[in-house]
């Protein structure tokens, strides 16, 4: 085998390209100079010393780096820092307020929804995003479809072979803003599936979120 580098390109050594910008994180403004290649995860951890968000895979496959951008949960490992200079970022360090724990943080402790704790910051930010999405009426794959009359279709269907049959009295889809989705255990499990936990704390995580959602 010839000498191979592990890449598909080769060029003269180009210098890194850096950009000066301001990041709004947890209600604070941080002026930073970042390499365009830098992800939000690496900037938070490496430049702002906000090490709560964790790097579990660096490919968007585990959710340990989940943070909120403009209130929505995203994976910070696939978010370029230069792309969020006009956004508002919240990390696990900013979830609570005035030194008090966020209700989700409290519930995670009460339900022992963590073991090693490494995925926990991502789980918490994701859970905060789930609460907001459900409140806004966002469906998940296990949310029942609208019943007859609400649209041209009536077919409710379960995508999950082992899911219980849908409630025949499923919620109608109103013309106004969608009703909030009630977060039962099945809803929480589906919505939280982007956050892996190898310790297997899922039952506690689901119980904790269900408690806060009530």
């Amino acid at each position: 085998m010839k000498g191979d580098a592990n890449t598909t390109y080769d060029d003269a050594a180009p210098a890194p390209i850096t950009v000066d910008l301001q990041l709004s994180v947890n209600d604070q403004l941080y002026p930073v100079t970042v390499d365009t290649r830098e992800t939000l995860l690496d900037t938070l951890r490496g430049r702002l010393d906000l090490t709560g968000a964790k790097k579990g895979c660096d490919h968007g496959q585990c959710g340990a780096c989940t943070v909120l951008v403009d209130g929505r949960r995203v994976v910070s490992c696939l978010t370029l820092t230069v792309s969020v200079d006009d956004r508002t970022i919240t990390t696990v360090e900013g979830l609570g307020s005035g030194g008090a724990l966020h209700p989700l943080q409290k519930a995670f402790i009460d339900h022992d929804a963590l073991q090693c704790g490494f995925c926990t910051p991502g789980q918490l930010c994701s859970a905060a995003g789930v609460l907001a999405e459900a409140a806004a009426g966002w469906p998940s794959l296990v949310t029942p479809r609208s019943p007859p009359g609400a649209g041209p279709e009536a077919a409710g269907c379960s995508h999950d072979p082992a899911a219980p049959p849908h409630d025949p009295a499923a919620r109608a889809l109103p013309d106004g803003p969608p009703e909030p989705v009630r977060l039962g255990e099945e809803e929480i499990r589906e919505r939280m599936s982007g956050n892996l936990c190898r310790c297997g704390a899922y039952p506690g995580i689901v119980a904790a979120i269900a408690e806060v959602a009530r």
């Binding site: 906000l50 090490t51 709560g52 968000a53 990390t91 696990v92 360090e93 609570g96 724990l101 943080q105 995670f108 402790i109 009460d110 022992d112 963590l114 704790g117 926990t120 910051p121 918490l124």
Partner: peptide, 12 residues
């Protein structure tokens, strides 16, 4: 309760 739980849920 897990004695290090607060450290873990706050990211500290």
């Amino acid at each position: 309760d897990r004695v290090d739980a607060v450290e873990k849920v706050t990211g500290r």
